[in-house]
Computed example of a mutant assay.
Amino acid sequence: MPHASWNESYARGELPWDTGRPDPLLMEFVTSGRLPPGPALEIGAGTGTNAIWLAERGFDVLGVDIAPLAVQRAQAKMEGRALRCRFLVWDILSSPPPEGPFRFVFDRGCFHVFDDPAEQRRFAQQVAAVLAPGGLWLSLIGSTEGPPREVGPPRRSAREVVLAMEPELEIVELRSAEFEIIAAQAWFCLSRRRIVPAQPSSRYV
Rank of each mutant, 00 (worst) to 15 (best):
G38T: 10
L62M: 14
V130N: 00
A124W: 01
V161K: 00
Q199A: 07
H3V: 00
P97I: 02
R175I: 01
Q125V: 02
E99Q: 03
P154A: 12
F106C: 01
P197N: 03
I52W: 01
G20E: 08
S32W: 07
R12G: 05
W6H: 00
R84F: 03
D115H: 15
L174H: 05
D23T: 05
E119M: 01
S95K: 08
W187S: 06
E119S: 14
L69D: 11
R155W: 12
N7G: 09
A177V: 09
G58D: 07
S5L: 07
F29W: 11
Y10V: 14
M1A: 03
F123K: 03
Q126D: 10
I141H: 09
H112D: 06
A67I: 08
G134C: 11
S201H: 05
L163C: 00
F179L: 06
R149F: 09
V196P: 13
T144C: 11
E178L: 11
E178F: 12
A76K: 03
R103M: 08
E8T: 00
A198Q: 07
E173C: 10
E160V: 03
Q125Y: 02
A45R: 13
T144Q: 02
G142N: 15
R122K: 14
S143T: 14
L174D: 15
F179T: 02
A4V: 04
E79C: 06
L69R: 09
L138S: 12
S9T: 13
G13R: 08
R159E: 11
C85A: 05
G100T: 12
G152W: 03
T49M: 10
M78E: 02
E79R: 11
T49K: 09
A51W: 07
E180M: 09
I43D: 00
A70W: 06
Q72R: 06
N7F: 06
S202N: 09
G44A: 15
R103S: 11
A186V: 05
G63T: 04
E150N: 15
Y204A: 05
R192P: 13
P153D: 13
E168G: 00
R103K: 02
P153V: 07
P37C: 05
I195C: 04
R73P: 08
E14S: 04
S9A: 12
D91Y: 02
T47S: 04
E42G: 07
P101R: 10
P117D: 15
P36S: 15
F123N: 08
A74R: 02
S176M: 07
Q126W: 10
D23N: 04
E180R: 13
Y204S: 03
L93K: 15
E166A: 03
S139A: 14
V30G: 04
G100P: 08
V30P: 14
I92W: 00
R203D: 14
P154T: 13
G46A: 12
L136R: 05
G146W: 08
S94T: 03
D65M: 12
V130H: 13
R175H: 15
L163F: 09
G58C: 13
M1W: 02
L62E: 06
G152T: 05
S32C: 03
V130R: 09
G142E: 09
L62R: 08
D107Q: 10
A76Q: 07
R155C: 14
F87G: 10
A184N: 14
L138T: 05
I182H: 07
W90M: 04
N7W: 15
